[in-house]
Design a protein around this nucleic acid. Structure first.
Lengths: 208, 208
DNA sequence: GCGGAAGCGGAAGTACGGTTCCACTTGTTT
DNA sequence: AAACAAGTGGAACCGTACTTCCGCTTCCGC
């Protein structure tokens, strides 16, 4: 983001797009260990050009992750239009998962499994949290899911799901994981089955 | 494993233990990016000595992971002695999770988040699968959990749980995750609540 | 306690990959 | 179409961290 979009020369803008596109593809395929000159080659530009547009590798990778968070927010907004509260929540989760199914780089990022701190996506994260929280509130208010379900649980779930995607590739496996989790999240229609009480500390976590 | 235990000199055996112990501690604290000379220093030996005992870094790290799998198997064997089938399963999962709570290196390994292939732990994995499968069978036979729960689900769960441990450190968070999942896995006492059907492909995965 | 095999230490070798730098090219403005 | 700023390419640089190598030390059987 070192360069103002408006003063940018036409070829620079084009190259920038190429770099992002190549980055997205290779980051998805190879993960964060993708090499800068690979991206450059694939984009049909020199390494110097990549560094002109993104000051560091981390900046480039962060841009990829940021886009995914934007996408999540869009998906959530679409899901919000679904009338049934539980279906809205389920759709949001399933569509989000589907969106990153082939993106192993993002999956790793989501799992927090590399040292990158992903600074610079706070805004996108906050925007996402807002919509998701609305959807969750509607579902809990309607008694469609566990009363104590919250945004952090959503994040935790997505983290678990992406780790299944990465660790056990294959469409069916992660869908199974989603199933198992949603089965636990969705309250039975009649009401009050208590969660299996195993762990004394489970409810003590700090909120938000 | 390059050296026969029996012909080993006393000091060599002692050094080997020190290296493993230092490796375990640092691998747990810093993850796989721990440096070889750090381990050497911490163990009070030279780097050359580390390489005499473990031909590569990967070999050393694999040894750490292998130990954890052995531990899992021991935990499962203990859990098997519990009379109630559901309690046995729950105990196994909870104790296993607790065992690796502080081991971020293993958590990453479990998530499959580094390129290491962890070859050389097939035996331990198979031994673990055997006990776990016994415990699961007993629980399904007793109608205590979902009929379709299997070893792969257990692996998937552990994978998800460790990713929560790593990504959202804090005792309470992962225990919450365990709760949510077990809530879904444990069938209600009365019987037949169907899983929420979201995903058409979910049941099609290949068995074992 | 001697001899030699086993083991040790750590400096140097090496590979890898992100980042810099600058001579050269291209777009844009007048 | 001239002139200059903006942009480009990629060889070279540099830091990091794994691994090797070999002269020295320690153990242990005789």
């Amino acid at each position: 983001m070192a360069i103002d979009q408006r003063t940018q020369r036409a070829d620079a803008r084009r190259n920038r797009e190429r770099i992002i596109s190549a980055g997205r593809e290779l980051f998805a395929r190879e993960g964060p260990q993708v090499q800068m000159d690979e991206i450059a080659t694939h984009a049909g530009v020199g390494i110097g050009t990549v560094y002109r547009h993104f000051p560091t590798k981390e900046a480039l990778l962060t841009a990829m992750v940021r886009d995914r968070f934007r996408e999540f927010a869009e998906i959530a907004l679409l899901a919000e239009e679904i009338a049934d509260p539980r279906a809205a929540l389920q759709s949001m989760i399933l569509r989000s998962a589907e969106a990153v199914e082939g993106d192993s780089g993002f999956q790793l990022a989501m799992m927090g499994s590399n040292e990158l701190e992903w600074e610079g996506i706070e805004e996108e994260k906050a925007a996402l949290a807002e919509v998701v929280t609305r959807i969750i509130s509607r579902a809990t208010a309607a008694g469609a899911i566990r009363k104590d379900f919250c945004f952090e649980d959503f994040a935790m779930m997505m983290c678990g799901i992406t780790s299944t995607m990465y660790y056990q590739p294959g469409n069916a496996n992660w869908r199974r994981h989603v199933d198992l989790i949603l089965y636990g999240v969705c309250a039975p229609d009649d009401g009050q089955r208590p969660a299996p009480r195993l762990s004394s500390g489970a409810r003590q976590r700090q909120s938000v």
